[in-house]
Design a protein around this nucleic acid. Sequence first.
RNA 1: GGCGACGUACCCAAGUGGUCUAAGGGGGGGGUCUGCAAAACCCUUAUUCGCCGGUUCGAAUCCGGCCGUCGCCUCCA
Length: 471
Amino acid sequence: MALQFRDTLSGETRAFVPLSREQTTIYSCGPTIYGPAHIGNFRSFLFADLLVRWLRARGQVVRWVVNLTDIDDKIIRAAAAEGVEIRAMTDRWEAVFRADMAALRMSTPDVMPRATEHIPEQVALVEQLLANGHAYRADDGSVFFRIASWPAYGALARLDPEAMRVGERVESDEYSKDDVRDFVLWKAAKAGEPSWETAVGTGRPGWHLECSAMSMRHLGEQIDIHTGAIDLIFPHHEDEIAQSEAATGKTFVGTWMHCAHLQVSGDKMSKSLGNIARVSELLAAGADPRALRFALISAHYRTSLNYTPDSLAAAGAAISRLDAFQTALRARVAGGIAGSGDADASAQTIAASSWERFARSMDDDLAVPEALAALFDLVRDGNRALDAGCSGAAATAMLATLEQIDATLALLPAAAELPHGAAELLEARRAARAAKSWSDADRLRDELAALGVVVEDGRDGQRWRIGGVGE
RNA sequence: GGCGACGUACCCAAGUGGUCUAAGGGGGGGGUCUGCAAAACCCUUAUUCGCCGGUUCGAAUCCGGCCGUCGCCUCCA
């Protein structure tokens, strides 16, 4: 099966063909950096990470942009409330976000542009839209996009523009405009708010504008894939399409991909329920970042994911199973037993078929649950082959498949390093076991455990791995 | 009110017309192996897919109704 993705705009799952064979361009709506990101935010970002990793695993060159929204109403209010400079505050939360990204093994985007560093690009878009009649200036100097000038408006969200006139919430709008449905491109300066003096007036950009401008600046006027969570479909992405295509006359995005929300024990995460799980807080409390990653990527991106109090422990157990399998494979590779024909043959078959099934699943609109089933079948069947006495060469083949799969999933432990003193303890325990000094061996095992080193004995001898939380 | 998604075992979660007497992970129970432990393996834990009708030779999968949950309908990942 060829690579295919579901596109929100057309509603179809269709073969993915990038505009250029040289490079695939992806833009992901990133965080507003005014506070710690929560696990719902990261579900969305890790979905994009999986997409990028999978395309790269298939050999495509991917250029990935994730923006940082560093100017908007919430940021202005938060900085004012704290009495700090906006830049100081956004710098601080950007650092936290980057630390969370690294901990959860999200690939580092090629560019992480900030809205405030792309004012000229945004102004140019506004000028273009004013010039071609898709935008107009209001009495206070703000500039709005004229939705009436864009018949396709509403296509992404499947909203009827006419119906949107009903239920208009005029009072919530702070700016005057011709039509309540119109959205702001440029906000005229207001007292106490940051502003830029530009060709379209003194003010600041509206939220939707930054993504169009930065996407064009770093990826070109047309890109292959744009990702985000479903709540961004309307109005954010709808507005991006309108302003981008009205400005360039070209199709803005080839494939729109949106992930469903995460829920906590069946409820929406919300301040009122007090159930917002923030990544940096979970990690500080000792959550295993690999387990958290597993928990957040394990459901299909287009279905809601229910995060419960048991999720981390269940994910941790699954991760531990992967670790143990990798350790056992390495022990067999190093130990090199003679091997049995049957076990070797089945190991080779398992190694090849597991990869095929994994790849087929990922190709099918990132069917991660099915891909994980392929991975865990590899673990079970691989353990079986190990038990049946397969050779080191056969184990090498399975290890290669495991690691090939992990290039996309990023769940296996980082290259393990023994804590200081552990190597000596391991050697002492090996000697103790050889001498059948069981009490010494058991004591040494406990000492190693205290250092976070899990020791297991098998037919390939003593083997160890780093266990427990953190890592 | 409009648009859309969903309801599968104790929990998480695939499957969307026959190969489903329903994948995978976690948890529970029993067993094998092992100096012990751990790991691993084996058996077991939904004849059933919210409920009621219908279409079909055949439905978890299609259609209709009902119940329930969630999302969007102007700045929320």
